[in-house]
Design a protein around this nucleic acid. Structure first.
Length: 642
RNA sequence: GCCGGCGUAGCUCAGGGGUAGAGCAGUGGAUUCGUAAUCCACAGGUCGUGGGUUCGAAACCCACCGCCGGCUCCA
């Protein structure tokens, strides 16, 4: 067979031989990037061990080198095998689950009667490094199904057997290194020594195949790179992530509080955090009113029967707080706002002329979350959705969806999020409503996305039973994605609450409902914002925009005057007139991440000027107050948009 | 909920069967200073909660609560 490797050359290989056989020949060529790690055949990654297609005479391979993203996948997959080998050597009774490469590294799920702890992890890491040092060659073998079953039952690898029995192929591939064997499709490196930099990061419990009914395995997470410096850079990134952790910054910057005595997952917004929230809320309301939404407020609890009608008791009760009984009636803390908005729709007879009816609310809801899943502001039990429900006619659906998408993107960009992952989830197996309308709604969602020129992926069958939806994840400054926005079409609730409007033909028709949240929940969005900006909010969001600092006590009077003038100019300003050195006061302001400091001493006072220090450290001297005000005003993104 | 780790002053953390320690923050004083930490003093803790072991527990054991990293789910 003729093998053409791009930019390397063309080689001849006898049939059913692996690429490995070509190594001596390839090594003779001067390769600027060294020997390839693996190859790409069309869109699949193959390694030096992989069997090549048999029915063709010629294939073209794209070589993958350490700098290619896909090579890392191969490396990490091998690293996970090394991890498994290390564990098996140290703990022979351990049983292996699965061990894939993941975005940031790899893991292996391993059963062992006694769960592993941090100390075991250190031991295992040591062993991993030994195996790497031995530079064991990897081999790929193909076994008959029965042979493979015999092998893994001899090895007492129950989980592997379970996997094996579900495979359809009669031939099973395994990879070996030293005396370690693992059921595996590949691809892998040539030798364990190619894994130059590896680190085990954590152990955690993980159910076999993610199912709570299955036994719990130990998941060992690690990461690996071709170069030590890449590992170092990654560990530094982890440090950076830690520094930006909204829970830490929330404490340091006094933004919010989650307090054991108050309750897990319940958020207290401290004055500074509350101020940021107020800015977001004011802006949100204004923008919605501009776009012909009606602002509404609804109660936090309601009679439980409401949730029976809505169907939430049937499919959502696990997430709902238990009922409260009073005067023989059961009340329910609300997990969603929709039923209330439905009653607003139903408050009077609606005409086709009333549609679309857009109701919006910053509605606080309570959902019970299992204690183990709570996480700072990102996962809480009480939160405020920036919710809206749009009731429209079928012919208005696409237009409304476009308008919603417009608004989403407008908001997200303003908050500094430029990149998104968008998923369109389509009809699941269990669904309500006529399939034709589903098709129409899916089409409407799709063309709305296309109309906005937004790239998206389709998640087939992942829609909620009541309608198709668009989920939007935003990418933060560290490249992490967060789900915030969601747009869902609903055919179910209008049916359950028997919503109608009177059409031109004087007959009743059923409206379609759109649920949508742009920011998702204010709590989560705030958490994401804190991490995105590392606590250094842009000027328009900063709880304190400017701080006035005096050099000595002599300047307090002048400082007070400047402070008052900035305040009446509409800025969020505070002052630091403490009897401390200027360096000390600058340091405090800097650590509080205040965008601007105004520093004044005798010199400024005499000349009636100011010194302005930006958060970046840049200093502008000798400015007049009106120059400063002009400069600050130009910083205000919001006013420049309005 | 489950698995592992953790819980000591407002914060960050040290200590560890003989009765509590640092830095920062706070308070008082000295200092009046030019763009990221001035000095001194003081004050501050039923060592997460409850129970047990012990002459003695913050340390060891058990239960619970909470937090952290995951599994699952989602805003």
């Amino acid at each position: 067979m003729k093998i053409h490797i791009i930019e390397i050359g063309t080689f001849q290989l006898p049939p059913s031989r692996p690429l490995k056989d070509l190594i001596p020949e390839i090594k003779k060529i001067k390769l600027s990037k060294g020997l390839p790690v693996a190859f790409k055949l069309d869109s699949i990654i193959i390694d030096w061990h992989s069997p090549l297609p048999e029915d063709v005479e010629e294939i073209v391979l794209k070589p993958l080198f350490p700098e290619d993203r896909e090579s890392l996948e191969v490396l990490r997959h091998t690293a996970s095998h090394i991890l498994a080998q290390a564990v098996k050597e140290l703990f022979p009774e351990a049983k292996l689950g699965i061990g894939p490469a993941i975005d940031e590294g790899f893991y292996y799920d391993i059963y062992y009667p006694k769960p592993f702890n941090e100390e075991d992890l250190k031991l295992i890491e040591k062993k991993v490094k030994e195996i790497i040092k031995k530079n064991l060659p990897l081999e790929r073998k193909v076994l008959e199904r029965s042979e493979a079953e015999r092998l893994f039952s001899e090895l007492k690898e129950d989980f592997k057997l379970e996997l094996l029995r579900e495979f359809e192929d009669s031939q099973i591939s395994v990879y070996t290194q030293g005396n370690f064997v693992d059921l595996c499709r590949g691809p892998h490196l040539l030798t364990t020594g190619q894994v130059r930099a590896v680190k085990l990061l954590s152990v955690a419990g993980a159910y076999w195949r993610g199912n709570e009914k299955n036994p719990m395995l130990n998941r060992i997470y690690g990461t690996a790179f071709f170069k030590e410096e890449d590992l170092k850079a990654y560990l530094e990134l982890l440090e950076e992530v830690k520094k930006r952790d909204h829970r830490r910054l929330g404490k340091e910057l006094e933004l919010f509080l989650i307090e054991e005595d108050i309750g897990a997952g319940l958020v207290i917004w401290l004055p500074k955090g509350a101020l940021v929230r107020k800015i977001i809320e004011d802006f949100w309301k204004e923008e919605h009113l501009k776009r012909d939404y009606h602002l509404v407020y609804t109660p936090h609890i309601a009679l439980r029967d409401l949730w029976k009608t809505s169907g939430h008791l049937d499919f959502y009760s696990d997430n709902m707080y238990p009922p409260m009984e009073l005067e023989n009636r059961a009340y329910q803390l609300k997990p969603m706002n929709c039923p209330f908005h439905i009653y607003i729709y139903n408050q009077k007879r609606r005409s086709y002329r009333d549609l679309p009816l857009r109701l919006c609310e910053l509605g606080t809801v309570y959902r019970f979350e299992r204690s183990g899943v709570l996480h700072g502001l990102l996962r809480v039990r009480g939160f405020t959705q920036d919710d809206a429900h749009i009731f429209c006619r079928e012919d208005q659906l696409e237009d409304e969806l476009i308008r919603v998408l417009d608004l989403v993107i407008y908001f997200l960009k303003l908050f500094g999020f430029q990149e998104y992952q968008i998923y369109l989830s389509t009809r699941p197996e269990k669904f309500v409503g006529p399939p034709e309308i589903w098709d129409k709604a899916e089409k409407a969602l799709k063309s709305a996305l296309e109309h906005k020129g937004l790239a998206f992926e389709i998640d087939p069958g992942e829609g909620v039973f009541y309608g198709p939806k668009i989920d939007l994840k935003i990418k933060d400054v560290l490249g992490r994605f967060w789900q915030c926005s969601t747009i869902q079409v609903d055919f179910n609730l209008p049916e359950r609450f028997d919503l109608v409007y009177v059409s031109e033909d004087n007959r009743f028709h059923r409206p379609i409902m759109i649920h949508r949240a742009l920011l998702g929940s204010l709590e989560r969005f705030f958490g994401v914002l804190i991490e995105h900006y590392g606590g250094a909010f842009p000027f328009w969001l900063a709880p304190i925009q400017v701080r006035v600092l005096t050099i000595t006590d002599r300047n307090i009077l002048y400082g007070e005057k400047i402070f008052q003038e900035l305040k009446s100019a509409g800025f969020r300003v505070d002052k630091d007139f403490r009897n401390e050195k200027i360096n000390y006061k600058i340091r405090s302001a800097q650590m509080e991440k205040i965008p601007y400091m105004i520093i004044l001493g005798d010199q400024e006072e005499q000349r009636q000027t100011l010194s302005l220090r930006k958060r970046s450290g840049e200093v502008l001297q000798d400015l007049t107050l009106s120059e400063v005000i002009t400069l600050l005003r130009s910083e205000n993104t919001l006013s420049s948009i309005h």
